[in-house]
């Protein structure tokens, strides 16, 4: 099950906790992976653990030209691209009344617009080969909202709508587009929380614990597999029961 031998994948934000876990999981199932992100040393560290079948292609997705160039480079390195995981994302939290235009724009640019450009660039090859998997890492807050994250929630909700439209356009070409929506996951982002904040969060999570990056990676790996060929336009929530949608 979920054999990805001979497949190729591009994972954005691959130096982060969830991105690295996704790349590792796809790689474990046999895929050749291209890791991208802004921090080259961190990407190299992930690549060193994976060994063979792994390429590092640093890129700054805030640059409008970067996505197309990145896809070209990944396709040249691996021969083609079967799986795109749009995982790169950032936060610029703040209450809406005080939110600056640039904090809004930066979050939308990286979390949503870069994803659009990447998908546009990969579709060409996927359409030709009549196969493809597009997976966006959205967030539970894209569906539920979260105070202090108007920009982030908008970008993540945008990704879900974008993914549905994409799925409709390319469904009859054997290309699927889906999202995975993590809840609270143990990463560098949640490591900074103190004990009290952690407790408050956990009161909202029926499972009684934070999620692991591997648990997000497992959902992505499923959606990337041949077994998920009939699943498209969906958002798979992985959140310990904190929101049931």
């Amino acid at each position: 099950m979920f054999d990805l031998s001979g497949k190729t994948a591009l994972v954005t934000g691959a130096s982060g906790g969830i991105g690295a876990a996704i790349a590792t999981s796809l790689h474990r199932q046999g895929a050749t992976v291209a890791l991208t992100g802004t921090r080259e040393a961190a990407l190299q560290a992930v690549a060193a653990k994976l060994g063979e079948r792994c390429h590092v292609i640093p890129a700054n997705l805030a640059d409008p030209e970067a996505p197309a160039a990145l896809v070209k480079e990944a396709e040249a390195a691996m021969g083609s691209l079967d799986i795109l995981v749009n995982n790169a994302g950032l936060t610029r939290d703040g209450l809406l009344m005080r939110m600056k235009d640039e904090d809004w724009q930066t979050v939308l640019d990286v979390n949503l617009t870069a994803g659009f450009r990447l998908v546009r660039a990969v579709l060409r090859g996927m359409m030709k080969r009549r196969t493809g998997r597009i997976i966006g890492i959205t967030s539970v807050v894209g569906v539920t909202g979260n105070p202090g994250q108007a920009n982030y929630a908008a970008s993540k909700a945008g990704m879900i709508g974008f993914t549905k439209a994409t799925a409709l356009e390319v469904a009859n070409r054997n290309i699927t587009a889906n999202c995975v929506a993590p809840g609270f996951i143990e990463t560098a982002m949640t490591d900074v929380l103190d004990e009290k904040q952690r407790e408050t969060i956990l009161t909202k999570v029926p499972a009684g614990r934070l999620g692991q990056a591997d648990e997000i990676a497992a959902a992505v790996t499923y959606l990337a597999s041949d077994e998920a060929a009939y699943v498209t336009g969906q958002t798979l929530h992985v959140n310990g029961g904190m929101a049931m949608i």
Binding site: R124, M127, K128, E169, V170, N172, R173
Partner: peptide, 11 residues
């Protein structure tokens, strides 16, 4: 051809 085919052709 469908609408996607025509886009592919143009490309």
């Amino acid at each position: 051809a469908d609408s996607l085919d025509t886009v592919e052709l143009v490309m």
